[in-house]
């Protein structure tokens, strides 16, 4: 099969699986999971340096940034201003002008505040950022984000960390149909079949953290996700058969013995 790489804002990625760096049992396990996943882009959060304990090892000691593209997020930001400020700090701390933009609207669901998200996207695009906004699975909001200059749209499959799987597959399909930029299903994946399903719906990539980091064996789950994303992508490209109510025999109906 010809190369089928993920391309965002002109940058090519080998893998269609993007993974997080949070909540692993240890940094060593994280590094092994990253390796097993085949991913070449990972998300990171921007936080105050821990000044009370300088002996604490740095996350970046466990990420080979020559192979792995760092995507800083604005997780935990509840306003446009906070998100823009965090994105700008992430740009200075990091190696690129890319940001996974989150503007959260509610603590319990961690659902995005789409109004502020669109505004923040507009501001950051104007400031030269490649913006990948985390959004609800709403095709109209995704269209607005794209119009605001987003380099991809990242609709949720289900609430962050919920592991519920893709709650509104039809919306993901519609978003894929509407979008001219890559669609990355971000959040909600619980297990490999969820990731495959997202890809079968036409998603260009899947982003996950908890599904791998929170698994009993994160390294094995990372490998499972690698295969699931590939399988789902292949199935999407292959074109599935239509659904039918009744059976259609796979074996010839003529030439049966004794008839």
């Amino acid at each position: 099969m010809a190369a089928d790489h993920l391309v965002i804002a002109g940058k090519e990625f080998q893998s269609r699986l993007i993974i997080g760096t949070g909540k692993y049992p240890s940094n060593a396990v994280m590094a092994k999971a990253h390796e097993a996943s085949g991913a070449d882009m990972v998300t990171v959060a921007v936080r105050r340096v821990n000044l009370s304990d300088r002996t604490k090892e740095s996350l970046l000691d466990y990420i080979d940034t020559s192979k792995m593209f760092l995507l800083p997020n604005t997780a935990g930001c509840y306003s446009t201003d906070e998100a823009v400020r965090t994105a700008q700090l992430g740009r200075e701390a990091g190696l690129s002008n890319w940001v996974k933009l989150e503007v959260i609207g509610d603590e319990k669901t961690l659902f995005p505040d789409n109004e502020q998200l669109v505004e923040a996207t507009r501001i950051l695009v104007r400031d030269g950022f490649v913006v990948l906004p985390y959004t609800t699975d709403d095709p109209i909001v995704c269209r607005k984000l794209e119009d605001a200059g987003a380099a991809a749209v990242m609709p949720l499959g289900a609430p962050i960390g919920s592991g519920l799987g893709i709650q509104n597959p039809n919306n993901i399909r519609i978003i894929r149909e509407f979008s001219r930029v890559p669609v990355i299903v971000d959040a909600g994946v619980g297990t490999a079949s969820d990731a495959a399903f997202a890809m079968e719906l036409g998603a260009d990539a899947v982003l996950m953290n908890t599904a791998i980091a929170g698994a009993q064996d994160p390294v094995a789950m990372a490998e499972a996700m690698k295969h699931a994303v590939r399988a789902g992508r292949l199935a999407y490209k292959a074109g599935r058969i239509p659904r039918k109510m009744y059976a259609t025999a796979s074996s010839p109906v003529e030439g049966l013995v004794g008839r």
């Binding site: 990171v44 959060a45 921007v46 997020n73 701390a93």
Partner: peptide
């Protein structure tokens, strides 16, 4: 002053 760095996140 605010001094920030990267930590684990999703």
């Amino acid at each position: 002053l605010e001094i920030v760095n990267f930590v684990g996140g999703g």
